[in-house]
């Protein structure tokens, strides 16, 4: 399957030249479809110092269908669902927005930029988004607390 070949290429690329702050491994060396990425919290964000495990699931139709992201480390962020799915809503990953030329590395770069700059208007956690918009101080405080509690 062409997808597999591409995945191998992408993996090799991402391992030799990983996006900033990311390391990528396969969850299971025999399964190209599940990637484990560890992303460092971007500097100048409340998440700095945290290490976030993100599972990336590539559908068998990849790259024709978008990969799926799941934060395995809890993070206090308007765009990451605060549940065991840890879903992050990225426009790029929406099925009608996804384009095959997008690469996982691009996705990881985007994830990191969203960590650095939350998008409260496109939130999955409305409460957190409201806090982010209206009470940035408290938001930063809780986010930092969560880093210490979950993401060390």
């Amino acid at each position: 399957m062409a997808g597999n070949k591409r995945i191998m290429k992408e993996l090799a690329e991402v391992r030799t030249n990983p996006p900033p702050g990311c390391t990528v491994t396969l969850a299971d060396e025999n399964d190209m479809g599940t990637w484990d990425a560890v992303m460092d919290g971007p500097p100048d964000s409340p998440y700095t110092g945290g290490h976030y495990k993100i599972q990336i699931t590539l559908p068998k139709e990849y790259p024709f269908k978008p990969p799926q992201l799941s934060f395995k480390t809890k993070i206090y962020h308007p765009n990451v669902s605060n549940d065991d799915r840890g879903a992050m809503c990225l426009g790029m990953l929406r099925p009608d927005e996804w384009k095959p030329p997008n690469k996982i590395a691009d996705v990881l770069r985007l994830v990191r930029s969203v960590l650095a700059a939350p998008q409260p208007d496109d939130a999955v956690e409305q409460g957190i988004a409201d806090q982010f918009k209206n009470d940035r101080k408290s938001f930063d405080k809780v986010a930092k607390e969560w880093v210490g509690r979950y993401a060390k």
């Binding site: 062409a2 997808g3 070949k5 591409r6 290429k9 992408e10 790259p63 024709f64 095959p100 030329p101 690469k103």
Partner: peptide
């Protein structure tokens, strides 16, 4: 520029 080209879908 690097003298290569790839199909952006399959990256070949």
């Amino acid at each position: 520029d690097n003298g290569k080209a790839e199909c952006t879908i399959c990256m070949d």
